[in-house]
Amino acid sequence: MEDREIRTALNLHWAASDANDFEAEHLIYQEDAVLEYPQSGERIRGRRNIQASRFAQPNMKRFTVRRILGVGDLWVTDFVLTYDGRPSYTVSIMEFKDGKVARETQYFGDAFEPGPSRAQWVELMR
């Protein structure tokens, strides 16, 4: 699969995620894909289990992609995942095999107030 095809698949995946289209969102994964959340120590095996775990979440979710970077079989998406109005700055690392995601790792970071010690060098992004 060429890079432009993977980028297109990623754009469709994140758009489906934002639309809560659980069927389209999970087409990108291999049947035996693995999803890891290192911060909570969770590993989910299998596309249907990944899909079911996301469907079961009670939160209202929104996805805002900031950028997608990658080449070949390794792609990174930097996005804001908003749960019930609260943003979490997120990085998804996807490893592709045969044109589908074989492994994904997601890292989450909550927003925090800027430190006053850096103020003279900082440009606020809000």
Rank of each mutant, 00 (worst) to 15 (best):
G115M: 09
T90N: 08
Y37C: 00
Q120A: 14
R126F: 06
M1S: 09
R103D: 03
I44V: 15
M1T: 09
A119F: 07
Y89C: 03
E2W: 01
D98R: 12
P116G: 06
W75R: 04
V122P: 01
F55T: 08
T64R: 15
R126H: 09
S92W: 07
P114A: 14
N11L: 06
P58S: 11
V34P: 04
P114M: 11
R126M: 06
V122H: 04
E5A: 15
K100P: 04
Q39A: 13
A119V: 10
W75L: 02
K61T: 11
E25D: 12
R47L: 07
P58R: 14
L81N: 08
A102T: 01
Q57K: 10
S40D: 12
G115D: 14
S88K: 05
W121Q: 10
T8F: 09
K97H: 13
R62K: 15
V76N: 04
R66G: 09
V80Q: 08
A119Q: 11
E23H: 11
L81T: 00
R43Y: 01
M125W: 08
D32C: 05
I44T: 13
G109R: 14
V34Q: 05
H13P: 00
I6K: 02
Y29E: 01
M94N: 07
G72D: 08
S88C: 06
K100A: 08
K61W: 12
E36D: 07
R45C: 06
R118Y: 15
R47D: 04
G70L: 02
A9V: 00
R54L: 05
